[in-house]
């Protein structure tokens, strides 16, 4: 039994290793650029998201919410989102409404509380999945172009593309610094409850301390990056409408985009029919 526990915790530890996290994040960011969702026009997807990201908050009809939920669940599958993100989604939904449910029982609630909470859960789940579909499923560049088309500040769309560029480098650097601590440092024994707490405190300390070298290393990098940006006309482009137009002219709406909207609409219309006959 203890052996099994040990194996289990080892397994979980392995899963939570930096390497695994890094891989999952990269997979989510870059690994699904050939899906149906990734090929859609970002503007269409953003409009689509505007509906499924907002409307569920304002409806309390279980059928309607269930219909929305099913649709976004399908699109999430189509977007081939990384496993970890889905796991986070589940944890997130539970922690947002699950604990409310328990607490309201504690304060003298009853089974009737379940219905509003189910409604709340569906809302949260639908909105989260819609955002996972759009933001994880879309190519970073297409996403930032889409946002720019809707008038988001240029700085934001630059940040998105840059973040996708810099992420693997930052993670590797962070990983190396943490490894230095792991090899040269000495973690306390993690036996017993007190030991576990001590171990946790040590880990947190290490993470905080590792930001000292990270800040300095990243500062060095940032300088080169910004100098290069100056030379490559970043600021020139930020104030030039012509450039924006050029960038956005790459966006094209295809039949696939319209089809995607039409199918979504068809599904919601069917839901409306069901609603009216129930």
């Amino acid at each position: 039994m203890t052996n099994m526990m040990k194996k289990l915790s080892e397994n979980i530890f392995d899963k939570l290793s930096m390497d695994f996290l890094r891989n999952q994040v990269l997979k989510n960011a870059y690994g699904n650029d050939d899906t149906v969702i990734a090929k859609l026009d970002p503007r269409i997807l953003l409009v689509w998201y505007l509906f499924f990201g907002l409307v569920p908050w304002f409806s309390n009809n279980i059928i309607f919410l269930g219909g929305c939920f099913l649709l976004v669940a399908v699109t999430t599958i189509l977007a081939k989102v990384a496993g970890l993100v889905l796991f986070l989604f589940l944890v997130g939904v539970f922690s947002q409404t699950g604990y409310l449910f328990l607490v309201s029982l504690f304060f003298g609630g009853n089974a009737e509380t379940i219905i509003p909470l189910l409604v709340l859960t569906l809302k949260v789940a639908t909105v989260s999945l819609a955002s996972i579909t759009v933001f994880s499923g879309l190519d970073p560049d297409r996403l930032s172009n889409g946002l720019m088309w809707f008038g988001c500040p240029e700085r934001l769309s630059f940040s998105i593309s840059y973040a996708y560029r810099i992420l693997p480098m930052l993670m590797e650097e962070f990983q190396n610094v943490l490894l230095s601590y792991r090899l040269r440092g000495k973690a306390p024994e993690s036996n017993g409850f007190i030991g576990k707490i001590k171990y946790l405190v040590y880990q947190i300390q290490v993470i905080i301390h590792s930001f000292y070298p990270l800040m300095l290393n990243t500062a060095k990098r940032s300088r080169t990056t910004v100098e290069a940006l100056e030379m490559r006309g970043y600021r020139y482009a930020a104030t030039n409408k012509e450039v924006k137009k050029m960038k956005l002219s790459a966006l094209k709406i295809t039949y696939d985009d319209l089809l995607f909207l039409a199918v979504s609409f068809l599904w919601m219309a069917i839901v409306a029919v069901v609603m009216s006959y129930m």
Binding site: D141, Y162, Y164, A237, V243
Partner: peptide, 18 residues
């Protein structure tokens, strides 16, 4: 290098200068 993909980065300056 500030862009995530190859062609994008290679053409970045030219795009910025319209």
């Amino acid at each position: 290098i500030v862009r995530p993909t190859v062609l994008d980065d290679a053409s970045y300056a030219c795009m910025n200068y319209a």
